[in-house]
Simulated assay, not measured.
Amino acid sequence: MTQWLVLLIAMVAVCAVVLSVVVLRQRRIGDDDDPSETPDVIEYMVMMIGVVYAIVLGLAIAGVWEGMGSAQANVQAEAQALHEVKARVQVYPPDVRDRVRADVDAYARFVSAKEWPYMRDHGSLSARGTALLDQVRTDVTRFDPTSDLAAQAYQPVVDEVAAADQARVARGQSAGATMPGIVWFGLITGGLVTVGLIFTLQIRRSPRELLLAGLFSALIAFLLFLIWDLDAPFGSGLAVSADAFRDLL
């Protein structure tokens, strides 16, 4: 079951529950009920709770969006550093140059094909990927340049490998979810409270009010799903792509 199907089911379920409660509640109201008797203080409380919850939702979305952007930047930095390694070893002897490039390609191929699903399932980097990058570092650092041109390129190549390793570590730190459980508890509880406050305003069964109640509850469900999906930058929904590593091949 895809995440988008889960989202659709969740939104439909939330709408169905809210509308069912409204209809069932309306049937139990007597003919002498006066909807205009809703106290002004309740309307004020409903408004304030809605505003506070909207601010919390906005901050949560901004936080996970920033985390997604940071993860994307780390991926681009790692891929760019490896590209520079392949380009700068052009002045190395053919056997060393081909070995370094082959190891970089092996690393990029493994990351794009194997490590991406591993990060999604385990929330961390794989030991095999670390070993492959260490092999690239070994090939680069063990080379003893004999020409002036190779000697000038040696340190920049070493620096690019170090930059790739640093970006890899940052990518690993972004692999797992960042939203604490207590925050999720607050978001879900706040959503239930906010939707539940609809009933304090004496909502009726008119098509307009039912439509607004359903759309409002569906919007809350969508925003919570969006936060959950963006909280996993390397998940299967709106995830960071491995195209930067595929472009190295």
Score class of each variant (00 low, 15 high):
residue 170 A to F: 10
residue 184 W to L: 11
residue 110 F to Q: 05
residue 94 P to H: 11
residue 176 G to T: 03
residue 181 G to C: 07
residue 165 D to G: 09
residue 73 A to K: 09
residue 91 V to K: 05
residue 189 T to R: 12
residue 106 A to R: 13
residue 98 D to C: 05
residue 201 L to C: 03
residue 169 V to Y: 12
residue 204 R to Y: 00
residue 135 Q to E: 14
residue 111 V to C: 09
residue 93 P to D: 14
residue 81 A to T: 01
residue 183 V to C: 10
residue 197 L to Y: 14
residue 95 D to R: 06
residue 92 Y to K: 05
residue 196 G to V: 13
residue 96 V to H: 07
residue 202 Q to E: 13
residue 158 V to M: 04
residue 184 W to E: 11
residue 167 A to Q: 03
residue 149 L to A: 13
residue 91 V to H: 09
residue 155 Q to P: 00
residue 77 A to Q: 08
residue 98 D to R: 08
residue 94 P to G: 05
residue 142 R to P: 10
residue 203 I to W: 05
residue 200 T to G: 06
residue 118 Y to P: 04
residue 104 V to L: 08
residue 126 S to Q: 09
residue 139 D to I: 00
residue 84 E to P: 08
residue 93 P to I: 08
residue 91 V to W: 06
residue 154 Y to K: 12
residue 97 R to P: 04
residue 171 R to Q: 09
residue 79 A to T: 08
residue 147 S to W: 02
residue 113 A to C: 00
residue 126 S to R: 05
residue 98 D to V: 09
residue 198 I to R: 04
residue 187 L to E: 10
residue 128 R to M: 12
residue 83 H to C: 08
residue 92 Y to Q: 01
residue 110 F to G: 00
residue 79 A to H: 11
residue 141 T to F: 00
residue 178 T to L: 01
residue 111 V to R: 04
residue 141 T to G: 05
residue 83 H to Q: 00
residue 192 L to F: 15
residue 142 R to V: 00
residue 110 F to E: 11
residue 103 D to R: 14
residue 186 G to C: 07
residue 149 L to T: 10
residue 115 E to Q: 03
residue 202 Q to R: 15
residue 76 Q to N: 15
residue 73 A to F: 12
residue 137 R to C: 06
residue 161 V to Q: 03
residue 138 T to E: 00
residue 77 A to N: 11
